[in-house]
Amino acid sequence: MAKLNINGRVRDVQVEADTPLLWVIREQIGLTGTKYGCGVAQCGACSVHINDQVVRTCVLPVGSVKATDRIVTIEGLSATGSHPVQKAWAALDVPQCGYCQSGQIMAASALLKRKPKPTDHDIDDAMTNICRCGTYQRIREAVHMAAGRKQA
């Protein structure tokens, strides 16, 4: 049994305490925008925000998440897909297959919260999620765009 605050809603879930938060989000809560990619915190497809920090949830036991922790998934990033990162991603047609992009967007939005005007070096350090389609060039440009360097 765990109490989770996800996208502003408090939910009770019946689940073993060692279950990774990723699978609780996907299977118990039913929000599938957060993806399974590797299970070893390498690829970042499972990234969400916990108290505004980006966290890879595939290795985070749900038992270690407090009821007061504010979890935000891709579904809760904005009500209408209008977060500056989402708008920049759309403007530059960043996604190819799209599977990793929830995680990319969560990583980028957490970066911008922390550093509203990131340098290329900041982007290099923060955006370590794997994209097998290779959308990295557009991700970099879109992060800059979302930071207001260019009009979206």
Binding site: L31, K35, T73, G81, A90, P95, Y99, S102
Partner: peptide, 26 residues
């Protein structure tokens, strides 16, 4: 612009791995 971008940005795109059906087992 691609016609298939919007639902890749808000988590609503249903990939095969995301399929949910009544009574489904795993």
């Amino acid at each position: 612009k691609r016609l298939d971008t919007a639902d890749k940005l808000d988590g609503s795109k249903v990939f095969a791995i995301d399929v949910k059906l009544p009574g489904m087992l795993h």
